[in-house]
Write a protein that binds this DNA or RNA. Structure first.
Lengths: 182, 182
DNA sequence: CCTTCTTGTCTAGAATATTAAACGCTATGA
DNA sequence: TCATAGCGTTTAATATTCTAGACAAGAAGG
């Protein structure tokens, strides 16, 4: 059972969005060394591996404890968003299957005249979003306002709130809330 | 913050009771390398450190995760056993202060005629022991027997039980029970 | 006193890791 | 099209690790 230090390092580096040269600069080693290590052409000394990881930064214990198999999905295609809504109001959830998720991020689409219901909503947490397309009437804590593209909202979810599309076209919103309710 | 790979390795090796040569033989490296690593005269390559640890055996993750500061006390002098009993029955506990301890190991001394009480004892777990000196009358689940030096017992602690020194001299027992009650 | 065994350390040379610099590639923009 | 800049890779030279073997010190037994 080998460790594949190279794959581990490459995984760490790329997941931090660093190039070999950038990591090398931060770590005080050469880019060539990073390349050789990642290809398993050399087995780095503990000291140089530590130098490299210091550039991330990450400890040796974390590095060797890393479980690459649970690298969570980071990108989701249109058809990978999970539909939670109905005909009038489409709610498409990002990272639906991710365990322990802290955020609920939704792509919301309201048909003309559609609303989140007759009742006001109220629950724990906070939520916010940005209108992408169309116009939405948002009632929060007794105040009402119509938001258009580029406008946004953010409020404590404990305040009673309600969304309603008062326009004639579809309204699209990208929203986020925490803690994760779905 | 340095890692002191040398001290870690030396700690691991000695705690497994291995000499440098013996570990080297098992790991397929030379004893000199072990010596140099332990003195921090070299920083081993990950591959050779892995070879060395394979000889223990221990994983790299375990090695770097090791917390040497919580090396628990392994030996206890006579005066380091904690007295839990009374004049008639002395109960001296091994490793009393160890957190998360699973076992209660006692050196028990019963004065002539002493007993664990008039009532029968009954509690969760299992217990056993060996008589070292003197004679003890042990009642377990309605059965009674007198045990002498070298004789032993083991039973489910749920069975009602009682110890009584029926001899004229002190009786000494070494006992163990789980889970730890004291 | 020896001899023999084991321990950890040290050293010269062989093997390997690391550097510095170049290479080939792709993308971006003038 | 040419230049520029970024990317990962490769190579030759250098620095370090690693091996094989010798050394000194301590313990056990004759």
């Amino acid at each position: 059972m080998t460790i594949d230090v190279g794959a581990r390092l490459r995984g760490v580096r790329t997941s931090f969005g660093l190039s070999q040269r950038e990591l090398a600069r931060r770590a005080g080693v050469t880019n060539g060394l990073i390349s050789l290590i990642e290809q398993n052409r050399v087995s780095p000394s503990v000291s140089s591996l530590k130098k490299v990881l210091d550039g991330v930064p990450m400890s040796l214990a974390e590095f060797f404890t890393l479980d690459l198999s649970i690298a969570p999905q980071a990108f989701f295609g249109t058809d990978e968003l999970v539909e939670l809504g109905n005909e009038a109001v489409s709610l498409r959830l990002v990272a639906a299957k991710r365990p322990g998720r802290q955020l609920t991020i939704l792509q919301e689409r309201y048909a003309a005249g559609a609303a989140t219901g007759e009742e006001m909503l109220a629950h724990r947490g906070e939520e916010g979003g940005v209108v992408v397309r169309g116009r939405i009437e948002l009632m929060v804590g007794g105040t009402t306002r119509v938001l258009g593209p580029g406008e946004a909202y953010y409020f404590s979810s404990q305040l009673p709130h309600r969304f309603r599309n008062v326009g004639r076209e579809v309204c699209e919103i990208i929203s986020a809330s925490t803690p994760a309710t779905f």
